[in-house]
Amino acid sequence: MTSLGLVQIVVYFLVLLAVTKPIGAYMARVFSGQRTFLHPLLRWLEVLFYKATGVREDLEQRWTQYAGALLSFSVFGFLLAYVLQRAQAYLPLNPQHFGTPNVSPDLAFNTAVSFVTNTNWQSYSGGESTFSYLVQMAALTVQNFVSGAAGIAIAIALIRGFARQQMKTIGSFWVDLTRATVYLLLPLSFVGALVLCSQGVIQNLHPYTGATTVEGKTQTIAQGPVASQEAIKMVGTNGGGFFGANSAHPFENPTPLSNFIQMLMIFVIPSGLMYTFGKMVGDTRQGWALFAAASLMFLIGVFVCYPAEQSGNPLISRMGIETSATDTQPGGNMEGKETRFGIAASALFATITTDASCGAINGQHDSFTPIGGLVPLFNIMTGEVIFGGVGAGLYGILLFAIVAVFIAGLMVGRTPEYIGKKIEQKEVKMAMLAVIATAASILVFTAISAVIPFDKNSYWNSLGAATANVNNGGPHGFAEILYAYTSGTGNNGSAFGGINAATPWYNLTIGLAMLIGRFLFLLPLLAVAGSLAAKKRVATTTGTFPTHGGLFVGLLVGTVVIVGALTYFPALSLGPIVEHYLMHQGKVF
């Protein structure tokens, strides 16, 4: 590791720590219906939404009604995104004349699901060569806002479950969705887009520019409304880039400073929501305990990934090539990384984007060393609770907090409590349902794709067997399939690379994995919210397990890691772990 790399990591964490409380306190005010400094500017817009849609601001919902509203909203979002893609040839804002053949039905399905579930897995080769500006803006960017807002709404509903007592309702999905969009995502994205523009991110509706290279060849330089999509892509932890190269593209992420800002934008809401949790349940120490657990896991991930990448491939140094960092070269493993970012900023970005359910990339994870690549993979497998996606990270770590206090309760033979609520059969059943649904999706789809045969030139997979779509053999090829379903189920959306997933088989099954990972994970947690809201708060006694101290933080981290390790260790052993040992024996894939 280099001192400059370490400074980048430390500065990043300190800035994150500094912004957590202000943004968290602001969100607590927004979702408690209190006035904020943005109300004079934006309250009219919130009211306009209610008037236009007939939503009553004072009408709250039971958890099933809340879930019904979310599901109906998502169905509508899916249908709109699907139709816009398939009909783009007949719609305006299409200067490149992209047609229906650019978007097959399976690709439209995958993309619509991907953006509705806040995943932004991009099965297409690049938005700049597939979608019109209208699709990019009205289908993809709009979903970036509302799917992120929906995730925040669910987290707020779960917080209310802990904060309330003897109530049947957990808030209104429509009001939470509107407030998350109007007071949080819109202003943050607006400011973020302006800052990114200042760094050179483009924002226009121009036709693509033709250029002649020094070799005399013609090159098409894509244009478009990039900054506006880029900002919400990060703030909403969506991750779907305007360009296929995502945040490695110089028009999306031109400078080391824009890279730093983008990394900060990914964590700002998830980190702040942990403070919001503490604030809304009346004990900010509870929020800081979650923050401490997430920080610990985040730093462990960074300090496994970064040294692995900085060490590079031992086979190259055995050939007598200098792989250590010097004044004139970064050393280590630079394959698949942008020279303007280097190893530390690429390893940090990869860790952050997979801790959160963002999925933006500034380097190719497929080109990481086996251990460096294992970190992003394992981060997603933890359920993306290391700060996590907007809303999804908080309700994910609260799920593990429920499991952790349940385990602690079993150890001492006492009914577990968390934030003054007794954790009983219903809560534990729901938490385990969420864990099992996501694990089953990852492992079952991966296992099927590792063995399923198809005829060459068949509709489902024209390349033949599903394993024919990977570019590498052995454990690396297996890791590519495992990563695809892990990324889809975890609603991350980042691609390991090295797999051609643009076939009906992968589009359909990864699409289903995204739906399972989103809805079969959050619906049980909404049930937990409803169950907890109806309970009385019990008084703290000397026998109550304190959930704001180091012991709880350790137990929570242990639960996350152990559940992840026990569930996925066999699969990881067949992929990056065995690949790491084979690499040291001189065999690479």
Binding site: P105, D106, F109, A112, F519, L523
Partner: peptide, 30 residues
């Protein structure tokens, strides 16, 4: 072929959401 495929994929998605609603009701009763 394409309109049939469009219908196929739309139905798959709608079926998932219907199943999710049934799952919600089941969670409520559990």
């Amino acid at each position: 072929m394409s309109p049939m495929l469009d219908i196929f994929y739309i139905i798959i998605a709608i079926l998932f959401f219907v199943a999710s609603w049934a799952f919600t009701k089941a969670c409520d009763k559990l």
